[in-house]
């Protein structure tokens, strides 16, 4: 099963490679990893998406917790959380296909950010599934280039408010 795990980590050099190295060294499956600063410049938030059976996920969380630079491990799977991913998609589209692509983009609330002679570039934000759906409707063969951010995620509601630090 796929899990979204959120980490608060010390904003030191090399922290990311410790986390990535843990996954490669123990052959855990890491699907995406994003990192950014928090309101506390000494703390970064890492969102990682990983998969495995319950025992593997349990081990992943325990091993992450053992890292000295990891301050907190929160498994957002099963909690009420907000998950977003951003994708920039350059779609092959000459003048004859532009209207169709813009219409699809509209339905997915994607923004047109660039129009070229034979392409349209879209910016879309949402859940991983939503982005996957958009891509399948456009058709992967029409996608010239794509960059996806990987998932970022926070817990909904009250708890976030209480932990002002590193929110």
């Amino acid at each position: 099963m796929t899990h979204v795990i959120s980490l608060l980590v010390e904003n030191h050099q090399g922290v990311l490679v410790r986390i990535a190295g843990l996954f490669s060294g123990r052959a855990y499956n890491l699907e995406s990893l994003t990192v950014g600063v928090t309101t506390d410049p000494a703390v970064s938030r890492v969102t990682l998406v990983c998969s495995g059976d319950d025992a593997v996920i349990e081990q992943i969380k325990k091993q992450l917790n053992k890292l000295v630079d990891v301050i907190k491990v929160i498994d957002l799977t099963g909690l009420k959380s907000i998950n977003r991913e951003l994708a920039l998609v350059k779609v092959q589209a000459g003048p004859e296909r532009r209207a169709e692509i813009i219409q699809v983009a509209d339905v997915f609330r994607a923004r047109v950010i660039d129009v070229g002679a034979d392409s349209i570039s879209l910016e879309v934000t949402g859940s991983t599934e939503k982005i996957d759906d958009l891509l399948s409707i456009i058709g992967t063969s029409a996608v010239q280039e794509m960059a996806r951010s990987g998932l970022v995620s926070i817990e909904r509601g009250r708890k976030t408010k209480k932990t002002a630090k590193g929110a």
Partner: peptide
């Protein structure tokens, strides 16, 4: 050294 010893130590530091 930090890269080589990372997976075989409890922790390591490069002092900068």
């Amino acid at each position: 050294t930090i890269g080589i010893t990372r997976p075989i130590t409890k922790h390591n530091y490069l002092v900068t």
